[in-house]
Write a protein that binds this DNA or RNA. Structure first.
Lengths: 237, 237
DNA sequence: CGGCATAAAATCGTATACAATTTAACCGCC
DNA sequence: GGCGGTTAAATTGTATACGATTTTATGCCG
């Protein structure tokens, strides 16, 4: 009776130790939207699923709560985070705030080989976009995030990189919740434009493109308060 | 034999539950520099000090490691973080990256009552600066950080606020390690200038002042590689 | 038949127990 | 006296145990 968390089966290729491995697996499942916001993650279930004790399961869930991907309610348990519309806005505001700066620094330091790597990422992203099937969709989601993470990595600031990892992961949750266009894709073309601008060293426009890109993603959301119809209003005309 | 962590005794006024309380107490001790970088924080010692089991002590230490204030080495234990010069640079680079943006947003939203609150904070900071004694020094350190945190709080973005909390706390560690001028103070006058600029709605200069302010703090650091003299070089002319 | 009180089950919070690893102490040996 | 190796102590990693809280099930009564 391992309830609803069976979506976690994943290729455990890692060599990591203990709770980290579990944390990473669950994070991946959340980011790839195999786990929906609000899903309960009971400590026993997680532990059983990964064949470890509740101790480690609990540690993993705690870790995820620090990243904002899981919310733990005292004496009630852990749930895949269900970001509020306000939280969603804050996440994208944060991205608008930091990504231009990251991009600037990345553009200043980027090497030709890294440009190649970025382009390769873009190509892969495009390939996945034209493929069909669940697993391609998941890979596409991941790839579109990886573009932004790659820039953070190139910027060379490990602290900003970690922060971006958090923001990208939480963005995925937000899109899962409030995204409208089934083409969930995060503007593949715009990624290309940004790379082009970087390549011709036009940092100014690269930053502007990035800002627009983030706004486009956010524009695809429907962040109106869903007032959950708690009362009988749900059945009155 | 509760080794070196006795610096943790603090007014436990909190009403929180479990590990959080311990985490907060240790964080405060680190930020106020009662605990020096590199100090070992053994799980048993922490547990005994707070009269809880190792389970909770461990959870608290894990939490602090996610904030970058503690580094845990596998099978070796937890230590107050000892940021490298590079890490220190990254922390201040991150602050230069985000604080102007936070300031902008804060200035846009600030209310008169919040301006008052900021000024009050400034006053308190000044008062502590002219007082002497260990505990005044600690309070001063905290107050100078609180100015930056207050701005983040006014900006209304909880995510940026959390991030700033992390950055300010880690900055305190960096200053403890690499700060030179015994006047550890984080430019009290500059805080005042920034408030003034905000008050006359001159956001442009407020941002510039903030950037300079952060650079001034960083300029007071000596971030040269201390190559620890591992060899006999330490005793050769 | 539905609502409320009570009891049972499930789940979380924390402590303790035991295995694995690291650190130190000790001791014979050069 | 100093050095390497072996053993004991200390510390961490993980599992299990037990009390507390929440959730669900049960049954009584209106």
């Amino acid at each position: 009776m391992t309830s609803t968390v069976d979506a976690l089966q994943t290729t455990s290729d890692s060599t990591e130790t203990g709770a980290q491995q579990i944390r990473d697996a669950i994070r991946e499942a959340i980011v790839e939207r195999r786990l929906s916001p609000g899903t309960k993650l009971s400590e026993s279930d997680v532990g059983n699923l990964f064949n470890v004790s509740r101790t480690l399961a609990r540690a993993a869930l705690q870790a995820l709560s620090y990243e904002g991907l899981v919310s733990v309610e005292k004496n009630r348990g852990a749930f895949v985070a269900y970001p509020s519309p306000d939280e969603a806005r804050h996440i994208f505001a944060a991205r608008r705030l930091v990504e231009p700066g990251i991009l600037c620094e990345a553009a200043r330091r980027i090497t030709p080989s890294e440009v190649q790597h970025l382009k390769q990422l873009l190509l892969e992203e495009g390939r996945l976009m034209n493929e069909r099937g669940q697993s391609a969709r998941r890979a596409e989601i991941k790839a579109s995030g990886d573009f932004h993470l790659m820039l953070a990595s190139i910027s060379g600031n490990l602290i900003m990189q970690r922060f971006m990892e958090e923001l990208v992961a939480r963005s995925s949750l937000v899109i899962a919740l409030y995204g409208q266009s089934s083409a969930s894709s995060c503007g593949h073309a715009e990624h290309g434009d940004i790379i082009a601008a970087i390549e011709r060293n036009d940092i100014e426009t690269a930053c502007h493109l990035m800002l627009h890109h983030i706004s486009h993603i956010e524009a695809d959301l429907d962040l109106r308060e869903r007032k959950s119809f708690g009362l009988k209003e749900a059945f009155e005309p």
